[in-house]
């Protein structure tokens, strides 16, 4: 049995906000199955007694003082925007609130 179904891949694409054609989904579902089969072996050695490492550095409390530094100008901030208006980033209509 496949480790991951086409529907699951479709749901992941939805979560990741990537439109996918049926052909793309079919292809990716097959690839994902192979890749997941290969990476699943991490579970073989990951015992409950092994602490996780999320970061190579063991430092903590790196902070900055609460000091204001210069911002970009609005022109700079908006310079890369695909569309802007009234000194704001312009986007197609947003559906619904969070």
């Amino acid at each position: 049995m496949a480790a991951i179904s086409r529907d699951e891949v479709a749901n992941l694409a939805r979560l990741a906000r990537i439109s996918m054609s049926d052909a793309e989904l079919d292809h990716l579902a097959g690839e994902m199955d192979v890749i997941l089969g290969a990476v699943a072996r991490v579970q073989e050695v990951a015992g409950a007694d092994v602490p996780p490492t999320s970061h190579p550095l063991a430092v903590s409390n790196v902070t900055r003082d609460d000091v204001v530094t210069p911002s970009l100008t609005p022109e700079q901030a908006l310079s890369g925007a695909p569309a802007s208006s009234e000194q704001r980033f312009k986007v197609p209509k947003i559906l619904g609130e969070e």
Binding site: V39, V42, V45, A46, V50, P51, P52, T53
Partner: peptide, 15 residues
């Protein structure tokens, strides 16, 4: 837990 979590544990073992 099975994937990302396990991978982080492997990271500990490699270290």
């Amino acid at each position: 837990d099975a994937y990302y979590g396990s991978a982080q544990k492997v990271r500990t073992l490699i270290k």
